[in-house]
C-alpha cells in the first residue's frame, strides 16, 4: 500500500527508486513480504520500523549487497539484480550509503577515508581536485578541523558525519541512511537530522532514511513508511501514517518519546 500524497516541492514525475512486490528470505526466515515503494527525485522517504523488521535488508538490496528472491527493484531506471558487475559499480557511484556503524576505515585517517573512494574511482584526478573535494565535504558536515585525526579519536556523532561526508564526495544522486541517529544523544541527533535536510537542499539528493526514531522521521521525511512484518502498512505524511487504529503502528508511536 502506498499513499501517493507527495509534497508539492517534489517532482513526482521522476521516480528514482521503484520497488514492486519485493520478497527476501534468509533460510526459513521471511524478511521482506511483498514490499512496494516509490521514491521521487529530491524526496526524503523515511522507513520506520522495529529493529529486525528488515529495513536494512531493503536498502542493501537497492545497492546490490543482497539479491532479492522475487520482485522488481529499479534504481535510477536500472533493474539492480540484472546488472553486470561493471554496470552495478557504475550505478553504485550514483548512490551514497551511510552505514549504521559509520563503517569508517580504521587504518586510515579522516583525509584518507575521504580520499579513498575518489582515488579508486577517478584515476586521473589531480591532488588539487582531491584536496578541494575533501575540503568541500568536510565543510558541508562541519568537521574541517578533524581532517588528520583517526576514526577512533572521533565521537559517535562525528563518525556519522564523516561517514556521510565520505559518501557525498562522489556526489551521489541518491542517499541511503541506515539508522543515522541510532545511539546518539538528542542534540547530536538533531544535528544529524539537520545535516540530512541540508544535504537534500544543497545537493538535491533523493533519500531513504531507515530509522526507528520518530523525531528523525518527523524532521527529515517528506513521506514516512511504516514497516511492519516485512512490508509497508502505510506510506504518506507523518501525521497521516499515525492517524490509524492499526495496533502495531499505534504501539510504535506510543512507545516512542514524542507523543
Amino acid at each position: 500500500m502506498e499513499n501517493q500524497d507527495i509534497p508539492p516541492k517534489i517532482d513526482s514525475t521522476v521516480p528514482v527508486i521503484d520497488i514492486r512486490d519485493l520478497y527476501k528470505s534468509f533460510d526459513d526466515l521471511e524478511v521482506l513480504k511483498g514490499v512496494d515503494l516509490t521514491v521521487y527525485k529530491g524526496e526524503n522517504v523515511v522507513v520506520l520500523g522495529r529493529s529486525g523488521s528488515g529495513k536494512s535488508v531493503l536498502i542493501k538490496i537497492l545497492v546490490g549487497l543482497l539479491k532479492p528472491d522475487k520482485g522488481d527493484v529499479r534504481v535510477l531506471g536500472q533493474k539492480v539484480d540484472m546488472l553486470e558487475e561493471k554496470e552495478l559499480n557504475a550505478l553504485r557511484l550514483r548512490i551514497g550509503f551511510s552505514f549504521q556503524s559509520s563503517a569508517l576505515y580504521d587504518s586510515m585517517n579522516i583525509r584518507q577515508n575521504l580520499e579513498f573512494p575518489l582515488k579508486m574511482n577517478r584515476k586521473n584526478i589531480s591532488r588539487k581536485e582531491i584536496n578541494r573535494a575533501v575540503e568541500e565535504v568536510l565543510n558541508a558536515v562541519g568537521l574541517e578541523d578533524k581532517v588528520d585525526q583517526m576514526p577512533a579519536e572521533l565521537s559517535g556523532g562525528q563518525r556519522k558525519r564523516i561517514g556521510i561526508a565520505r559518501t557525498l564526495i562522489l556526489k551521489p544522486e541518491i542517499m541511503l541512511y541506515d539508522e543515522p541517529t541510532a545511539g546518539l544523544d538528542p542534540i547530536t541527533s538533531f544535528e544529524i537530522n539537520n545535516l540530512i535536510n541540508q544535504m537534500q537542499l544543497k545537493y538535491n539528493t533523493s533519500s531513504i532514511i531507515i530509522t526507528h526514531d520518530l523525531t528523525c522521521a518527523k524532521e527529515t521525511g517528506d513521506r514516512v513508511g511504516m514497516f511492519v512484518e516485512g512490508k509497508f502498512t502505510k506510506v504518506g505524511k507523518f501525521e497521516d501514517v499515525f492517524d490509524t487504529n492499526d495496533e502495531h503502528v499505534k504501539g510504535f508511536y506510543n512507545y516512542n518519546f514524542i507523543q
Partner: peptide
C-alpha cells in the same frame, strides 16, 4: 583479525557500495 574486524564493522560492505572491489583490494 584485520579483515574479520573490517567485515563485522561493515567496512568491506562500505568498499563494495563505493564501487571498490574489496576482494581485489
Amino acid at each position: 583479525a584485520e579483515l574479520g574486524s573490517m567485515k563485522v564493522t561493515e567496512q568491506i560492505d562500505a568498499m563494495e557500495v563505493s564501487a571498490i572491489n574489496p576482494f581485489k583490494y
